[in-house]
Design a protein around this nucleic acid. Structure first.
Lengths: 233, 233
DNA sequence: GGCACAGCGATTGCATGCACTTTTACGAGA
DNA sequence: TCTCGTAAAAGTGCATGCAATCGCTGTGCC
């Protein structure tokens, strides 16, 4: 077809498709249950069906889309039950990360974690939800990295990405920002004094609260017509 | 080409390829670091390159193969460090499963677990390694299922499959069979009395021991020329 | 003698086409 | 009118072909 890719330009076409489609799922632009037609997607992104197929295969392996032989792909629909299961897993994984972080972080990592955390207090005062959410992601990533365990890191990041669609709006709850910061504070304090058990427990509690905060939004849009596929902004 | 698939015959061709190639990796028939040539694989299984490519993509997402753009795919090579990380994760995951199992298993599940476990005592007496390994897999699967958490189950099974190549020979260590059964017994006992903490700790210890037992074999063949596909000497 | 670059072979990446499966729409019979 | 059957349409699954990229080898230059 037309010459060049006009996309984010990096990696192979398949990688771009994985990101493009994955993002649209994670950000909720594509709704759970929505049908993913190969031809439409290919046309939408101006590529052939082959890379689209491969991308769908990988997204399927990631759990973001469901695929039934000869029946096409749909955005993975998560039941309330499965969602709870994922949040529960997330809590356990974060607990492990926090515990390991308390036991294994280098002095430099501890310092970085704490200073970033302290700096973020400003964001809370300002009520900067956007910025705080970005910091929040960073904060948790530090915890995952601090565990010094590649596999745990992979499992955790994977689970987080699957939960992403359901966590978007958590900071819109009133007062959530300040509470989140305080919860982080408990975790950081425990990590700084090397108390793995306390750090783990605090992290688990933290996620559990996020889980409950997000449960509200899980109820909405279990499916919905297909207005989406058109152009965005 | 020739007419019918001669393979395990189930699911799509891609699924068959994923299983076929995955099995060869998991069973060690394909060595870590070995190059996976699309054309060769396609010829080997008498399919076109397309399903092979898709299968490699999925195996890559599973972590069994590594893929660099324009440079082909190789069997994922796991460093000693990463292997330790995976065993560590496995221990944590099994601990979670055992803990949840102790708290959540239905009466029926508990009964089944215990009776299977008791039945397996015979296998130990007979020294039936093959059969015991099969039972062992079943036993652990029961634990994963008993956690009643789909996502934890998925994470655990995924991790187990990645560890499979390194666990094959564990029961060849002298006396391992009996020890394994005793360790299982501790787990079962804790689960039967609903003691989550104890079950979790016992499961973690169990995996840790397996980890050490397997470490011996991890040292061998971190790679190896590439005698496999063609002539050697 | 060593290094750099150009040409060539090998291999991957993507597009297109055809076969097969599923789904849907329509019509005949009860 | 409802049900069942059948056939067309849609959409997926796989094969094949071509373009692009990587790696290697050989040659020229320093």
């Amino acid at each position: 077809m037309s010459g060049k890719r006009s996309l984010i330009r990096s990696g192979t076409t398949v990688d771009q498709m994985v990101r493009a489609i994955g993002d649209r799922i994670v950000t909720g632009f594509l709704r759970p249950g929505e049908k993913l037609d190969e031809a439409s997607l290919a046309a939408r992104f101006d590529v052939s069906r082959t890379p689209v197929r491969e991308a769908l295969g990988r997204l399927s392996a990631m759990g973001l889309v469901e695929r039934r032989p000869n029946r096409g792909a749909t955005v993975a629909v998560v039941t309330q039950e499965h969602l709870a299961s994922m949040f529960e897993s997330m809590a356990e994984l974060e607990a492990i990360c926090a515990r390991f972080s308390a036991e294994r972080m280098t002095a430099g990592e501890r310092r970085a974690l704490e200073s970033e955390h302290q700096a973020s207090a400003r964001l809370v005062q300002l009520g900067a939800e956007e910025d705080y959410e970005y910091f929040n992601t960073e904060f948790h990533t530090r915890l995952y990295r601090g565990a010094h365990s590649k596999h745990i890191y992979e499992l955790t990041v994977m689970t987080r990405s699957r939960l992403a669609p359901f966590r978007r709006a958590q900071f819109m709850l009133p007062g959530r920002l300040a509470k989140s910061w305080q919860e982080h504070d408990v975790i950081v304090t425990a990590i700084m004094r090397g108390d793995g058990a306390a750090a783990g427990q605090a992290a688990k509690d933290h996620v559990s609260i996020v889980s409950e905060a997000s449960a509200v939004f899980a109820a909405v849009d279990p499916m919905k017509p297909a207005d989406s596929i058109g152009m965005s902004s």
